[in-house]
Design a protein around this nucleic acid. Sequence first.
DNA 1: ACCTGAACACCGTTCAAGT
DNA 2: ACCTGAACACCGTTCAAGT
Lengths: 196, 196
Amino acid sequence: MDSATPRRRRPRADARRNYERLLAEADAVFREHGVDASLERIARQAGVAIGTLYKHFPTRLALIAALLRERHDALFARGDALLADASPGAALATWIRLVVAHAATYQGLAALFIVGPGLKAAELAEDCARLASVTEQLVGTARAAGALRPEVTSADVSALMNAAAWVHEEISADQANRLLDLAVAGMTPTGTALGS
Amino acid sequence: MDSATPRRRRPRADARRNYERLLAEADAVFREHGVDASLERIARQAGVAIGTLYKHFPTRLALIAALLRERHDALFARGDALLADASPGAALATWIRLVVAHAATYQGLAALFIVGPGLKAAELAEDCARLASVTEQLVGTARAAGALRPEVTSADVSALMNAAAWVHEEISADQANRLLDLAVAGMTPTGTALGS
DNA sequence: ACCTGAACACCGTTCAAGT
DNA sequence: ACCTGAACACCGTTCAAGT
């Protein structure tokens, strides 16, 4: 059985260094120019040839996915912790803020998340599925606790989070927060904030 | 004085025909591939050389603006009519639907509208300003009539309209409508739909 | 007055040749 | 095992030359 998943050989030192430099430069370039930024620029800034970038990351999405790996693990861990929170409304409110802030880190990232499990985004499909799963559980708990109107779906909450992240990218964090607060008030039985 | 704005000379017949064909093909290509579609493809499909496209439309935004001209005139006319509506809440609700449907016609259009009067978009700046102006007036009337919570700004409504159009582009008209209904409920003193 | 298409720059992607 | 960089395709944009 184990032979089907051979343990990875220790990578060569220069390969590992190139991999790390590429990730670091990709983060810098994506922060400044969004996830559609030039891959050639990333390779150039990392001091490697373009072929080396493609060797390590066969597609743009593979690069993005590798870049998000650690942050996603941390995000999902926080999500799992929130599921055990005593106040389901407050837990969902916290989760929404976390996800919006994360999805707004690079311009264009929210657009990737929103298509999610959809056709494309192969390398990010699993991350999107986990994101949707945690959201669905938190929405379910909040609804069961009476913190959400019964007709609000987890798809509604996901769409809102991505839309708010997009507003954050395109206008400002402030305007994104206002949209979030208004829409959340519309999802609440009392017409106010979640968890209050 | 009039000599400062010389009356346009009648364009040559082939020039006029090329102009019209370019607009028609641009509409078709933008509908299928969004506003970032290849200009070369548009010229090719219109049967003209790339230089001819640039002669008529010096920038991509000039082409988009020309394409939206008639639709914008119709939209703003409807907006002016809505300002005289007896029910300000219902009028705003109608306006929101009109703008969202319009902003979702081409993928990427909402992203242009949301930056609006912002730095770029020179050729579209005036259209964005008129859009914002009508929205501001309708929001003001609705608020004065008690149909909106007092703290809701016209910037909030504009952000919501663009966000809903984006969700329409990226997911579905249905999901966009759900976001719209939920957020509007959060903007209303009663937590329900506008104009009811 | 308008149109054509070559020219240049830049990027995505692949792959033969090197070490 | 990994890296390099040329090669090809495609597009944005400009402009000299044609009609």
